[in-house]
Amino acid sequence: MAYAYLFKYIIIGDTGVGKSCLLLQFTDKRFQPVHDLTIGVEFGARMITIDGKQIKLQIWDTAGQESFRSITRSYYRGAAGALLVYDITRRDTFNHLTTWLEDARQHSNSNMVIMLIGNKSDLESRREVKKEEGEAFAREHGLIFMETSAKTASNVEEAFINTAKEIYEKIQEGVFDINNEANGIKIGPQHPTTSSTLAGSQGGQQPGGGLLLRTLHLLLLPPSLPPPPPVQPAVLIS
């Protein structure tokens, strides 16, 4: 599929905040209440449209567990956008944002767009982090902010698309060096793949001798089943 741009995203945040569910909701439009722990990193992709242009999003969903932290760090450098996710029903995930942000800023390129996401907004009764707190954190650190629910799909599209819009604007402003793929941005192929020019080759397959089998002639009967009535014998097996 042709696209104008390709953006690489990563999704980061504590374990269990719903990163994989966000990705699944975005790519497959479904929700899986019980999700295995992500091991290392998983990949997903989807096409979106911004400003009338097709944009391909390649998304790497990282494992939130501490033990995978060193592995996931390898993904910061090549990403154009990051979704930093916390769980509004677990304050500790919000408290860890600073660590995540430091990690991201340290290992990523400076232009990486970071979207802060408070996930599980459907669980209002169990909320521990106020929306205003999320907004304040985002303001303080220059992030975009949104509350989402991977379960109800609320704001999920918007989260991914708004991040892409921000990147797209940065490209228009010339902030990103789009020729350096290490920034996580790639310009789409200018031309469709070249069509094949090779004509089909000819010359029959030589199955080494062809049919040298004893030919069996098949005698065919109407579909009346058991037992077959006597029929005129056809040709014999030589």
Partner: peptide
Amino acid sequence: KEQLLRVQLATSLGKPPVS
């Protein structure tokens, strides 16, 4: 499976065909 039961073969001259 049922269709294949209809297939009859002629083995040799003078003998009845065989399924």
